[in-house]
Amino acid sequence: MRVLVAGGSGVIGRKLLPLLTSVGHDVVVIARSGKRVVRLESTGAKIVIADALDRDAVLRAVDEAGPDAIVNMLTAIPSELNPRRLAKEFEQTNLLRTVGTRNLIEAGERSGVRQVISQGLAYAYEPDGSGLANEDTSFWTRPPKQFVPVLAALKELEQRTQAASGLVLRFGHLYGPGSIYASDGSFVQQVKAGKVPLVGGGTSTFSFTHAHDAATAIVAALDKTVSGALNIVDDDPVRMSVWLPVLADILGAKAPKGAPAAIAKLAVGGWGVAYMTRLRGADNARAKLALDWRPRHASWRDGFAAELKGKAVAA
């Protein structure tokens, strides 16, 4: 199968491209010119140059590539985020998820693409509910202000993908090389420096996804005729009050101190507090059944240890 990947240089893309090639797919990547092109060429994929926000350029690129499937991993997320400025720092990603997705789907429909897979999020679910969220759970109905445009872009991405009979893979908190949880990642460095407290008791439930497991889910989906949305997360949803101290211990850092939510809000804003206290974990049962997929890193505990023990760099 010829697979066109948009967003191949991201956290998932760097795992996905060699995996697609290794299982026999003919891989084409849409990329803007620059240093990333050199890195992408080393994967063995063919590169077509186009700005995903330029409709005509995308139409030409997809026509040139002639893919059977499009994998939309378009994001432009900064390597370090300020939760108080989330809306501003996600502006480019929001455009890619809306305008970029629209361009890709239009180009795919014109070229006769049979399958579209897009990257979504498994931690945008309504927090006020019991148990883990499955794919039928509604998205956050009254999110913090900074998350409003991010959620709106995600909803549009899902609507466009599913209208094209495509599949949205809702990934959890991504970790692995290139992520904020990598040994040189911004969050790991903050934990090592003792700058990440347990806000409000750390009551958010996190569902993590290793980048390799995200990539294997995409490969599995390409072999199926599945549409809609699926949660691609590990088997071990966990409260922040549990995983943050474990991460600090792996890094040889001091145990995180507690911080009242009201005081923390002054520093990290409403979204920052909600991120640490209100997120809901996700259920992966439907993805396992529909894709015949299993995460190699079934628990964040094993995944963090494999990624970080002996690798953490000095703060």
Rank of each mutant, 00 (worst) to 15 (best):
A31R: 02
A211G: 06
G129W: 10
Y181L: 15
K88Q: 15
I47W: 00
V148G: 03
L16Y: 11
I47V: 05
E64F: 00
S241V: 14
D128C: 11
S241P: 01
D236I: 00
E135G: 03
D213N: 14
S33Y: 00
I117A: 14
S130V: 15
S9P: 10
A262T: 14
K254S: 15
G100H: 10
I250S: 07
G66S: 07
F206D: 07
A164G: 06
Q115A: 02
K88I: 08
V116K: 03
A221Q: 04
K257H: 10
R2A: 04
D54E: 12
V313K: 10
L169S: 04
L279R: 13
N72Q: 05
V28C: 01
E135M: 03
L198S: 07
D56G: 05
G44Y: 06
A76G: 05
D302K: 12
T21G: 04
P149V: 05
S207R: 06
D56R: 08
V313Y: 00
P143Y: 06
G13R: 01
A57F: 02
T93P: 04
K254I: 14
K224Q: 15
T203C: 08
K15H: 15
A69Q: 02
G129H: 09
G131S: 08
A52I: 00
A211T: 05
V3T: 05
V188N: 05
R160Q: 14
A262W: 07
A314P: 03
R14E: 14
L104T: 01
L230M: 09
A52L: 02
L251R: 09
G200T: 12
G252I: 10
G129I: 06
A274R: 11
E109S: 12
L169W: 02
S111I: 01
K46C: 03
P177Q: 14
T141V: 13
E126D: 15
A221F: 09
D51T: 02
